[in-house]
Design a protein around this nucleic acid. Sequence first.
DNA 1: AACAAAACTTCCGTTTATCGGAAAACAAAG
DNA 2: CTTTGTTTTCCGATAAACGGAAGTTTTGTT
Lengths: 277, 277
Amino acid sequence: MPDSKETKGRKGDHQNVARAAQVIDIIAASGPNGLRMTDVTERSGLGGSTVHRLLAGLIEHGLIDQDPETNRYLVGLKMVSWTAAALSRYGLAPYADASLERLCAATSDTVYLSYRSGNDAVCVDRREGNFPIKTLTLALGDHRPLGIGAGSLSLLAFQPEDDRRRLLAEDAVRRATYGFDTAYLEEKIAETRERGFSLNDGKLISGMSGLGAPILRRDGTAVAALSIAAISSRLEGERLTELSQMLREEAQTLASRASDVLDAELVKRHSFRKVQT
Amino acid sequence: MPDSKETKGRKGDHQNVARAAQVIDIIAASGPNGLRMTDVTERSGLGGSTVHRLLAGLIEHGLIDQDPETNRYLVGLKMVSWTAAALSRYGLAPYADASLERLCAATSDTVYLSYRSGNDAVCVDRREGNFPIKTLTLALGDHRPLGIGAGSLSLLAFQPEDDRRRLLAEDAVRRATYGFDTAYLEEKIAETRERGFSLNDGKLISGMSGLGAPILRRDGTAVAALSIAAISSRLEGERLTELSQMLREEAQTLASRASDVLDAELVKRHSFRKVQT
DNA sequence: AACAAAACTTCCGTTTATCGGAAAACAAAG
DNA sequence: CTTTGTTTTCCGATAAACGGAAGTTTTGTT
């Protein structure tokens, strides 16, 4: 039998988690009606009995569900509670909702909350304003390389310098697919650091602009970002000034509300002198 | 999970997924600052090197993240995109947001969206109104036995009869911990089916009431529910009539918008016998 | 700043859970 | 009722996970 060498990155590394994740990814990538076992089998390239055993295990632990009507497999709702745990990091969760709501109401545009995860910014929440032209560039769970998009850029700009340098070097190729070269990005980073917020004016999607502000820890690193997206004509002149101001304030409010958790990790590091109030 | 026997030496028992899920559960159950490897080791009862290998695999595939500052483990943000996929089931996702928003704005109380998952109702979204007394009984990902709580009750009431009977028998013990005996619940189910919406008046948490309406497929089974929670004095008399009406309409609107997907699975089944309202 | 203790990572022989082919059970179409 | 396709079970061979112990790094304390 021919060896399927496509998924063979390294040898002997954690086949179990790899396969489970692969199967879930396959199911997640399918539409809202789920997949039959055969579909999973052929898309994964795994043996029939392996897939069967794997699916049984995944179901038993709630990672995937099986529709009782059709016997098709769907991503399990246990992911929802795990996601709730994932979002509770930094302690932002209890306050983020209110911040997004306020910004959304005040601007009528679409507002986003993103977290940094590795080399990416991930969209973890979104609120649509009621301005008739919607700019839904990011969906829940979407991720982009750091630096691409307003929120993502404000995250990158406020990483520690060595980290920033490493990221700039590492991800050049991925960023290129979005039409961002490193020199341009460096310029934008400097601008963002100086102003305290990021502005992305139509470079990514023409006609659409974005505004982003970082959620900072006390040591100045960003762990998350708030951002606003709108058609470019709504992010110019006086309105731009006004909104960027509002956005920055909201980001600071959010950061200070969560500051206990935000800094809890840092406090115990002796490299950090704590400024108690 | 129903596995009570934890000792090693069990045969052929999907150990891989079991352990991965166990580790993620442990991390999810910890606070916003995550856990060190040792914490995971002692809480899981697994060997040190096993946990190490497992964590490495989980990280590689994004199921958990490691805070670069503290090296502590957190639930990974990949869960967010998997959750997005989980919520896309039934095709409700694109419209649910707007429905919740409308209800929330109109009532000023807290509104919830729940899905059925196995024998439980799971809270998958929530919107807080601006009435000063908040009733946040359910958080994202929380689950309750079917029948407990307004949304959950409306889900149960609109399951196929055989299923309902089975659920009533199976979960009696779990429901008892909430103070619901089966006879009472049967009465409430009948009431709910008759009215088309469920009312939970202070039985679960005294002083708090809830109102729930099912999202129905064309065959009459509920796959999800919208619900409103408020202090009891806000769900009485004329306002109760008004809100229940609004809630039912919104649930119907939502169902009809998603109907293509909602019924896609059923269409291909020739066993489409019960077309009732 | 130096030391001790705790935590993390790697190594490697042993064990055992996983693999996948084949065939039985099951379901869907013709 | 037959045919075709899908799901489930079985089983021996083997690759992958296990875990004790040794080595390395981090963390907390004097």
